[in-house]
């Protein structure tokens, strides 16, 4: 069972949260096509790479938030929350080698575009 870094509640068991799913943009409801809408509803990429996903802390703060997770290693990065001071809260890598490989060894750092 994964340990999920809830930004408010701290590290929590996966069962305390609900994985809403990969964070995908919603097409314009007035201009979309059936193909595009079908992709939005049903089709997700499944890369062995970092993805953004939405979690809901149902047994704790009851907040929805976005985490990035590496689907190969289950390593999490915690991007800044809305309202956090941009440029200070850079991502943190929190999983401790859960599968024995080198987690994210060849992944580019994920910066938050700080002003400086």
């Amino acid at each position: 069972m994964l340990l999920v870094p809830c930004p408010h509640c701290g590290p929590r068991n996966q069962s305390d949260l609900r994985l809403v799913g990969a964070t995908v943009p919603r097409p314009d409801p007035n201009a979309t096509t059936p193909e595009e809408w079908g992709d939005y509803l049903y089709l997700r990429d499944n890369p062995a790479d970092w993805i953004e996903e939405t979690w809901y802390c149902r047994a704790g703060c009851r907040r929805y938030f976005t985490l990035t997770r590496h689907q190969g290693t289950n390593e999490f990065r915690n991007p800044p929350m809305p309202g956090d001071k941009v440029g200070t809260a850079t991502y943190t890598t929190i999983s401790v080698g859960s599968s024995g490989s080198q987690p994210g060894a060849n992944i580019e750092p994920h910066t938050t575009g700080g002003a400086s």
Partner: peptide, 14 residues
């Protein structure tokens, strides 16, 4: 170290 890292990663928790 691991405990520190886990807690520090949760930006608005203690």
């Amino acid at each position: 170290a691991i405990a520190h890292r886990l807690q520090a990663a949760t930006v608005r928790a203690a």
